[in-house]
């Protein structure tokens, strides 16, 4: 084992980690926004839109993220749209996570007892106000553990961007390996970086899950 090469490449690795974090933050933010929107369309049973939402969810949950990434990265230029590697990765991760997050949030909304909405309506709240002030805040307590669990998966899934050549953590580590021929040491360091990012979130999920049934 030669850990020296890892130490020498530390700035490249940390730079890659930063790119991975950026990509994760973008995917989480945009995916959650899209997912919330789709969940609201489905629970409100908006005609036509909610059928489209269902097909969207089935296709993006039913096919591999890698396929979706290829589709955006190779498919859009084929249709005459220019996409950078970053844009392709963000688009694919957003569409993919939006489908999963929509189902997590929808399950959370449906877990709120019907009486809550009735009480809100009986007080004269509009459907929007009932959703915004009564249902959604309660959805959060139910949906938060699976949501954060999914975010952990999404952070790890940003690694797929390496396959289309985006310079995130794994791609940077491969270039170090090409130079140093020490794959195990470098991969161990990369694993450690991912672990340091994801493990605190995993612990948070465990804590939140323990709290929910107590309600």
């Amino acid at each position: 084992m030669n850990w020296h090469v890892v130490w020498e490449s530390r700035s490249v690795l940390l730079g890659g980690a930063l790119v991975t974090l950026e990509l994760s933050a973008l995917a989480i933010g945009l995916g959650t926004t899209l997912g919330l929107l789709v969940a609201l369309i489905r629970t409100a049973r908006v005609p036509v839109l909610s059928q489209i939402a269902r097909v969207y969810i089935e296709i993006f949950r039913g096919s591999p993220l890698l396929m979706q990434l290829f589709f955006v990265f190779f498919g859009l230029p084929y249709l005459g749209f220019d996409v950078s590697k970053l844009a392709a990765a963000v688009w694919a991760l957003t569409l993919y996570s939006g489908a999963y997050i929509a189902e997590i949030i929808r399950a959370g909304i449906e877990a709120v007892p019907k009486g809550q909405k009735e009480a809100a309506y009986s007080l004269g709240l509009s459907p929007y106000e009932a959703m915004r002030y009564v249902v959604l805040p309660q959805t959060l307590t139910v949906a938060l553990p699976p949501l954060i669990g999914f975010y952990i998966g999404l952070i790890k899934d940003t690694s797929l961007a390496t396959i289309i050549g985006y310079r995130e953590l794994i791609r940077e580590s491969q270039s170090i390996i090409d130079r140093t021929a020490r794959p195990l040491e470098v991969f161990t360091a990369v694993a450690l970086i991912y672990f340091v990012i994801c493990y605190p979130l995993s612990l948070l999920v465990t804590r939140l899950e323990r709290r929910v049934p107590a309600r």
Binding site: K156, S159, I170, P183, F187, Y194
Partner: peptide
């Protein structure tokens, strides 16, 4: 569970 599966694939195929 806290590292990417792609990395695990690379470790076994390129690392070992």
């Amino acid at each position: 569970r806290n590292t990417p599966v792609l990395l695990q694939i690379f470790v076994i195929f390129f690392g070992l």
